[in-house]
Lab assay of single mutants.
Amino acid sequence: MAAAAAAGAGPEMVRGQVFDVGPRYTNLSYIGEGAYGMVCSAYDNVNKVRVAIKKISPFEHQTYCQRTLREIKILLRFRHENIIGINDIIRAPTIEQMKDVYIVQDLMETDLYKLLKTQHLSNDHICYFLYQILRGLKYIHSANVLHRDLKPSNLLLNTTCDLKICDFGLARVADPDHDHTGFLTEYVATRWYRAPEIMLNSKGYTKSIDIWSVGCILAEMLSNRPIFPGKHYLDQLNHILGILGSPSQEDLNCIINLKARNYLLSLPHKNKVPWNRLFPNADSKALDLLDKMLTFNPHKRIEVEQALAHPYLEQYYDPSDEPIAEAPFKFDMELDDLPKEKLKELIFEETARFQPGYRS
């Protein structure tokens, strides 16, 4: 834990890192770190609560700039109880001085990944967590956004079992017609939660990839272990087919990539493993919904509104309290091709509203 900075004593240090967030945020305490930044909790002297502050230093890398800009653009436009918001952003007053960006968010005690390492969940908890994931996802999908990296560590939890989806750095506007060349190379989302079509096709992607990830998360809540822990690309596919069985001819016809289709045709026939054999203690309604989410063919996979209306979630289902976005989200430009200098300018502009004396 960093010592509390005395008023006016300059930035606090946390594990050798400068955290320049005073005077409003003090009493910093280390939480963890990701690929390009550290997260601390801090005391907000204005709202009198502890908050989470993520320090991001992305400006050396085009990919990190892209992810940072995506996350900020999306989260500043989203407003939903099951999606983490941005409360404040701290950065230098000029673009030349801006080396880091500090993002202030609600402090959540833990995440689903940490929880599943230590606790076996009751059916009631599984049901409530799944409902909140789908409630947040309904809003995301209504904005025409794909999260693309749903996994237990991106689901934040607090002691009252509130759940918030975080990390929109890989999110995209849904565009089933656009052929994202190089899709697989830039697709760094965790393999275990990846839909089979991501490994088999490169053309376009749809909201059904997020539903697949939610199915993987439900299976993990039922058993405290990942359902498809593939060691590499082909191993991942083999794990999936080992449980779902061989795809039907109709399902194979959806695979545009001939090499991928021929690979699947070359494999020995596998039978589907019954879900109640894998999860003998699970609620039968939970397994019915799991089956509809972990469907090989993305066109037959359940959609988020149908999933919310499934009998497993009937005690929570309330369409009048499951809000959607006001308007579909649009990125003005494809960020993939922009140089990091341009992305830095866009991050600077996007964060201006939090600067003292800002006038829109």
Rank of each mutant, 00 (worst) to 15 (best):
L287N: 08
N281M: 09
P152C: 10
D179I: 05
Y64N: 15
Y233R: 09
D167R: 02
D88N: 14
P229C: 04
I227W: 07
N123Q: 10
T63L: 12
K300L: 08
H299M: 12
A9W: 01
A219V: 12
R148Q: 14
G85T: 04
E197H: 07
D162N: 14
L267Y: 04
T110Y: 10
V101N: 12
G136E: 12
D100N: 14
S29W: 04
L184W: 11
I84R: 01
I86G: 00
Q249D: 02
D291P: 02
T94Q: 08
L244I: 03
F348G: 10
I90F: 14
G10N: 07
A174P: 04
T295G: 03
K231F: 06
E197K: 14
I84G: 02
K203V: 13
V188F: 14
I217A: 08
L252R: 08
D283H: 02
Y36K: 09
R301E: 09
E345P: 01
L343P: 08
E322G: 02
G357N: 01
F78D: 10
D291S: 03
C216F: 14
R194C: 12
D106S: 03
I324M: 05
P247C: 01
K203F: 08
I95T: 05
I217C: 06
R24S: 14
A307C: 00
P23A: 03
G16Y: 09
Q17W: 01
E250R: 03
K151H: 03
V39N: 03
A195C: 06
M98Q: 01
D179C: 08
H125R: 14
R67M: 15
L130P: 13
L343W: 02
P196A: 08
I217T: 07
K342M: 03
E350K: 14
A260K: 06
G357I: 00
K99H: 08
G37P: 08
H180P: 09
D332N: 14
H299F: 07
A35R: 05
P328M: 07
Y43H: 03
E322K: 14
Y131K: 02
L244T: 01
M221A: 11
M13V: 12
R79G: 11
Q306M: 02
N154I: 15
N201G: 06
S223N: 12
I140N: 13
S202K: 09
A143T: 08
L69D: 04
I240P: 04
N224V: 11
E322P: 00
P298A: 04
R353K: 13
S223A: 14
E322M: 03
I347L: 12
E349T: 01
N154E: 12
H141C: 10
S208M: 09
Q236C: 09
Q119P: 06
P323W: 00
A92E: 00
P23N: 00
M38R: 09
K340W: 02
R225P: 02
L150T: 04
D337H: 09
Y205H: 06
V304K: 06
Q355C: 04
L134C: 05
I84A: 02
M333V: 02
